[in-house]
Design a protein around this nucleic acid. Sequence first.
DNA 1: GTCTATAGCCAGATAGAC
DNA 2: GTCTATCTGGCTATAGAC
Lengths: 202, 202
Amino acid sequence: MSRLSFREQVLRVREDAIVTSVNRLLAEKGFDLMTVDEVAADVGIAKASLYKHFPSKEALAAAAMVRVLQRTSAIVDQQSAIAGISAFERLRAVTRWALEQQLSGEMPSLPSQNSSLRAELLGNRSYLDLLVQVSDRLGEWIVQAQQDGDIDGALPPEVVLYTVFARACDPVPGFLKAGGRYTDEQIVDWVLGTCMNGLRGR
Amino acid sequence: MSRLSFREQVLRVREDAIVTSVNRLLAEKGFDLMTVDEVAADVGIAKASLYKHFPSKEALAAAAMVRVLQRTSAIVDQQSAIAGISAFERLRAVTRWALEQQLSGEMPSLPSQNSSLRAELLGNRSYLDLLVQVSDRLGEWIVQAQQDGDIDGALPPEVVLYTVFARACDPVPGFLKAGGRYTDEQIVDWVLGTCMNGLRGR
DNA sequence: GTCTATAGCCAGATAGAC
DNA sequence: GTCTATCTGGCTATAGAC
């Protein structure tokens, strides 16, 4: 790890605070309804200062996605390090984490239709590398789980991967939470259960 | 059925064309990225004329949602009329229809966070009545399917209902279709299968 | 009811002093 | 790098002639 000058450390901390705000606002309101003014106000700096750190609203969103993927990658590492559990159980654990993140308002979700946003993400090396890395590692677990008979072997691994990814932006947990009748733990258990059971064959 | 004057018929046809355009654009780009100018251009009339029919962009979206619910209600009727099939099979058929609608670009999806849109929908009697009607009828099937042992009895019916509704805006079919490697029928079968299997107990 | 033209507003982005 | 003040474009909605 390289030494950073004091100035660089301050910069890091500030940008980290910005990404934290963006992350929360993206989870709360989504990309289109989030305004750069709000982000600036939330961080406590002027909008023009924000633009010294990130060149566009899209870049802010991309930074938030990169951080989420970094955290996801860390969770994947963590599950890989646990001995004596099946690939299916590892996959379940990562999916559970994603659902918990979403319920606690820390999972940003972006509209897949926005083209300027797509362009930004497709031009972001860090984002693409992390996405491929996480996808590959989850893909290995999926194939293994199919060999173990825990996931329906007739499903293309791609379908399983997307199904798991989609839990991170599933509207069901949010609706159930809004109803106020169930605990977060119940919600996670039900949604996770229906998801993972659906992947097993019959 | 009441006789309509010629003028009223022309009005109906025009408004129907408007709703058709809105429906397609909502499915394609979502509410925030859809502009009223686009809708007017797509219908082939001036924007000001559009505002003579519908008082706001939100009202346009609400009209599209009302039509979708009317069609859903018709599908529910149709399934109710079929003799000799289980409640679970009826529920599966309606869910399949929703997935097919989505894949063919005819299922509008609205952001649940937009507050002005929420207000419009909550103030729309037709929308609310249809939503309750459809929910109640699906709810009966769900309870029946649980009694039949086809759906896990430990799941609150509300969870099952939301899970089924959520398939109408699931991003997975769109991603698989964008990949271009599978037919629409395969995609529907896989997504429907993982969804319905997930609702069964173990 | 349809059009052209425009008002009014809001949000993303920037200029320029410090 | 931070600020205040401002520019700019695009979008919803409306005025007013026909």
